[in-house]
């Protein structure tokens, strides 16, 4: 050994630095498999290194935060810097989503791949405009056709998951938990009718 004393480097530390670099240049979340392939390392070690990075880049400690979102890992700005970020950049994807767009987005997120006629049947109005707007924003994308020459079907994109801060579509709440079912609706209406008749 020559010169000054050198600390023995932890190999996971080195991998963590490589992963940091990959996450900085990526514009969309990277899965563990993608990170392992790019760093030519094992997925188990990548997971360990990600844990190390997450402890360094977290709210309150760093302006950059590692998050698990849209099926992968990505850096984002810390929430405390949101106001400064808002002065610097626009967010056209999530700005001004109408009620029709949100309802269409909900149908696609829960039922996708789903076609425009199927969306229209649920909402009771044509969905062409809302679907076109959501495709333009990148929140939904085409996902093949119902059959040869059939209607185009749509699915939610990873960008949708990222914008809404979801690690995946499975994080959406169960539909049944959100509103009453048809039997409950009928019972309630009949109950109301009974009260009025009495």
């Amino acid at each position: 050994m020559t010169g000054a004393l050198r600390l023995v480097e932890n190999p996971v530390d080195r991998l963590a630095r490589t992963l940091e670099a990959l996450l900085v240049i990526a514009s969309s979340p990277l899965s563990i498999e993608e990170l392992a392939a790019a760093s030519e390392d094992e997925t188990e070690r990548v997971e360990t290194a990600l844990g190390l990075i997450a402890s360094r880049y977290r709210e309150g400690r760093s302006g950059i935060v590692l998050e698990h979102v849209a099926g992968g890992y990505a850096f984002r700005a810390a929430r405390e810097a949101a106001e400064a970020c808002a002065r610097l950049v626009e967010r056209p994807v999530q700005r001004g989503l109408s009620q029709a767009a949100l309802e269409t987005l909900a149908v696609v997120a829960y039922l996708g791949p789903v076609s425009r006629p199927e969306i229209a049947k649920i909402r009771g109005v044509a969905a062409d405009s809302a679907v076109a707007g959501l495709v333009e924003r990148g929140l939904i994308a085409e996902a093949g056709r119902e059959s040869d020459g059939g209607a185009v079907r749509y699915r939610a994109t990873p960008l949708f998951e990222r914008v809404f801060g979801l690690s995946g579509l499975s994080e959406l709440p169960r539909l049944d938990d959100l509103a009453e079912g048809s039997e409950e609706l009928r019972s309630r209406l009949e109950e109301v009718a009974g009260r009025r008749g009495a």
Binding site: L97, A106, R186
Partner: peptide, 21 residues
């Protein structure tokens, strides 16, 4: 009733998305 219930669920899901956003 089923259609109304289904629509109400997605309307509620849209409200959840709005809150989440």
């Amino acid at each position: 009733a089923e259609r109304l219930a289904l629509y109400r669920r997605f309307k509620a899901a849209a409200a959840w998305l709005e809150e989440r956003l």
